[in-house]
């Protein structure tokens, strides 16, 4: 029975992940074989010309995306960590309004946010800047980060914090020396997701950054598709490279999300 389920599970996963397989397959196919009929189901004769082209042309875009991702993580943590602490431990009542606001933020379409930012940035001269994109991308992660930190920090036993206060630590000191180290797993989880969302962002990049020289890789791929429809191996190779953070997250955050959930339940 169990073996039968495993077999079905493997087949279902295979069907689900077929597009991912196909992306890798195409990325390794020779340009000459790209329009073969029937298509090559397996790259028997793989080529790395797609990857060479991708790295040759998209390396600056990948670096830009990396920088934007890291900047977004920093900004998100800066805003969300103290807020999570305040909501979880300092202001337990009267947080309903903030909860409601954070849920409403989920309802705003990205295109509406993009128009708002565009209207502001055009005045401030922040269009086509990396800093502007970092600020815009952080709006994807901040609501999630605040809710996650709040849930996590609410689970930190009061005994530990009371002990710190008896030792004479103030609120800031307790936050820095007790709460932050204990929140490590949730910080890692938030960082990974904030990075991934900024890395994957297309709408803000295509609106706030569209005439810039320093474009992120998502826009790089989009322009690739527009300009260059013959070299699909290079496009798919860039897509594979752009998927690396997702693969990384899948392996790492699996563990940290689980750790975050179990650590939230305090045993006494």
């Amino acid at each position: 029975m169990s073996r039968w389920r495993t077999a079905v599970g493997v087949v279902l996963t295979g069907v689900m992940l077929f597009p991912v397989y196909w992306m890798v397959n195409v990325s390794l196919t020779r340009t000459g074989d790209m329009r073969a009929d029937p298509p090559h189901w397996f790259p028997w004769d793989p080529t790395f010309e797609g990857y060479a082209a991708a790295l040759g042309q998209q390396l600056p875009a990948l670096a830009t995306s990396l920088f934007i991702g890291l900047g977004t993580v920093a900004l998100t943590l800066l805003v969300a960590l103290p807020a999570g602490y305040a909501l979880a431990k300092l202001l337990p009542r009267g947080t309903g309004a903030i909860d409601f606001l954070l849920l409403v933020t989920q309802m705003i379409p990205a295109v509406v946010m993009a128009m708002g930012f565009y209207a502001i940035y055009i005045r401030l001269g922040m269009l086509n800047t990396v800093a502007g994109l970092i600020v815009a991308d952080s709006t994807l992660a901040v609501p999630f980060a605040v809710l996650l930190f709040r849930a996590f920090m609410a689970g930190i036993p009061r005994e530990i914090m009371a002990a710190a206060q008896i030792d004479g630590a103030g609120t800031w000191r307790t936050f820095r020396s007790v709460v932050l180290p204990l929140s490590r797993n949730s910080v890692i989880t938030v960082s990974l997701f904030a990075f991934l969302w900024a890395w994957s962002d297309f709408i803000f990049a295509s609106t706030l950054n569209r005439s810039s020289d320093t474009i992120p890789v998502t826009l790089g791929i989009f322009r690739y598709i527009g300009n260059n429809t013959t070299q699909w191996n290079a496009i798919m190779a860039t897509a594979v490279i752009a998927s690396v953070p997702a693969a990384f997250l899948l392996v790492l955050a699996q563990r940290y999300i689980a750790a975050g959930v179990t650590a939230g339940a305090v045993k006494d």
């Binding site: 599970g9 689900m16 899948l250």
Partner: peptide, 28 residues
């Protein structure tokens, strides 16, 4: 069942991929 945790994790892949990656793959 055997491998169920691994397979369930694999199902997350479409969710984690950048949309431009999925969309261009589907286009092709």
């Amino acid at each position: 069942f055997r491998l169920s945790a691994v397979l369930r994790a694999m199902f997350l892949v479409p969710w984690l991929l950048p949309l431009i990656v999925s969309a261009s793959t589907w286009s092709w």
